[in-house]
């Protein structure tokens, strides 16, 4: 399995990353190395191994349904680059 420069560009876009032409070359190569290693793992016969959904052998970590107040509005907005009327102000969406 190998991926093209175009696919790396796509993944970068999904992650909102911008790469220069040189970086793109570099990451395509690196990602192909990683995928090559995955291919090696795929050579193992795992037909008798159950899928791993979590690395810890723990289930059902749950909390009771109790509510509590945590942040006031001012603190909640403290890191906001821009705000208005007690809300986070974000630039044009579409």
């Amino acid at each position: 399995m190998s991926i093209s420069k175009k696919e790396v560009e796509h993944v970068a876009m999904l992650a909102r990353l911008e790469f220069s032409e040189q970086e793109l070359e570099e990451y395509t190569e690196k990602m192909n190395d990683i995928l090559g290693y995955m291919d090696k793992l795929n050579q193992l016969d795992t037909s008798k191994v159950a899928a791993t959904y979590h690395v810890l052998p723990i289930n059902n970590v749950l909390r009771e349904d109790k509510d509590r107040h945590y942040l006031d509005n001012e603190t909640a907005l403290k890191n906001a680059p821009d705000k208005k009327d007690g809300m986070f102000k974000v630039p044009r969406i579409v």
């Binding site: 909390r63 109790k66 509510d67 509590r68 107040h69 945590y70 942040l71 006031d72 509005n73 909640a76 907005l77 009327d85 007690g86 809300m87 986070f88």
Partner: peptide, 14 residues
Amino acid sequence: ACSTEFGGEPNTHV
């Protein structure tokens, strides 16, 4: 554990 109450002042159940 934030409240799910509808209609609170903006960004107070966070």
